[in-house]
């Protein structure tokens, strides 16, 4: 990876483009990318489960790299060593005996057990124990242990709703924000998602998870940030949701306990901001205005289908 960590010099990309024979017009410079240091790995891991993905990815990479290198080596070696020589014949070897068949199936099963096996095992463990091991909020109606958030995705923004002081959703003291997702550091966060129009997918790259937000049903997702995760991050929409899909980002802030208490205390003002933000957003995308009806929120589903 280190090898790749230099910026492609502008003249090189320009030269390559020339070479393609497509770049015929004169006077065009390639707009050089904003000079930010390049990155070839996922963004910072901020959740307590994120390392599970990272380590599993690395493990699989090493395993398949082994297979791939072996395969490529055989290919290249054969291309060189077994090139046709005049007058010579290849081995007349059909490999159609029972023994050959058993051997190749056994080898394939060995690869399955050796490579897919661990992958399946770890994936099963991580999913059951972590990624889909949702915290139980049945008896909880305050958000001390598990912060509950309702998410409404829409073309091309994210709405968030917190229960507020009364611990109940869809009441007057709810805190509602637009594209502004804040959570207290270290606390478990449980989200219930839906969409008001098309399918979106809430992607938290820093937490290594995503879940679709489907209109007409409620899905859920959970994560817990590490204790040192305070900072500003981003939410992405991973599912194609229209021509402005690529703009559908929201800010994702992990707050210290103190910042959180301060922010959560100002609930009324925050919800007012939401209305203003929505109006502003509508202004930018005129076609959304007609189809949107902005009253939303639901009673927390103690047992959503999944």
């Amino acid at each position: 990876m280190r090898l790749l960590k230099f910026a492609p010099p502008a003249y090189l990309t320009k030269y390559a483009a020339w070479l393609t024979g497509i770049y015929l017009a004169f006077g065009h410079g390639i707009v050089s990318a904003e000079q930010v240091p390049a990155r070839y790995t996922p963004p910072t891991d901020i959740s307590v489960d994120g390392h599970l993905f990272d380590s599993l990815f690395i493990l699989v990479t090493w395993m398949i790299l082994g297979l791939f290198v072996a395969m490529t080596a055989i290919l290249i070696y054969s291309m060189i060593a077994f090139r046709q020589k005049p007058g010579k014949r290849a081995v007349y070897e059909k490999g159609d005996s029972k023994k050959d068949a058993v051997k190749s199936v056994a080898f394939a099963i060995a690869i399955f057990l050796g490579v897919d096996g661990p992958l399946l095992g770890f994936s099963h463990r991580d999913v059951i124990d972590n990624f889909w091991n949702f915290p139980n909020t049945k008896e909880i109606d305050n958000d001390k242990d598990v912060l509950r958030v309702e998410v409404l995705a829409q073309q091309w923004a994210w709405n968030f709703r917190y229960a507020g002081k009364d611990g109940k959703f869809n009441t007057a003291d709810d805190i509602v924000t637009l594209n502004d997702f804040r959570v207290p550091v270290g606390r478990k966060v449980l989200l219930q998602l839906t969409s008001k129009d098309v399918i979106h997918s809430m992607f938290l790259p820093n937490c290594r998870i995503k879940r679709d937000a489907n209109p007409g049903e409620i899905t859920r997702m959970w994560f817990q940030t590490k204790n040192d995760a305070v900072g500003d991050y981003q939410i992405a929409c991973a599912q194609m949701c229209g021509y402005a899909h690529y703009l559908m980002q929201g800010s994702f802030k992990v707050l210290s306990e103190q910042q959180w208490t301060d922010w959560y205390g100002e609930s009324a003002r925050i919800s007012e901001n939401w209305a203003t933000a929505q109006n502003e957003f509508e202004g930018k995308h005129a076609e959304l205005k007609a189809r949107n009806n902005y009253s939303w929120g639901w009673e927390w589903k103690s047992q959503p289908p999944q």
Partner: peptide, 13 residues
């Protein structure tokens, strides 16, 4: 392989 396993697909999907 990464996409067939759930734990890695949740990020890579």
């Amino acid at each position: 392989l990464y996409l067939g396993s759930i734990a890695t697909d949740l990020y890579l999907h």
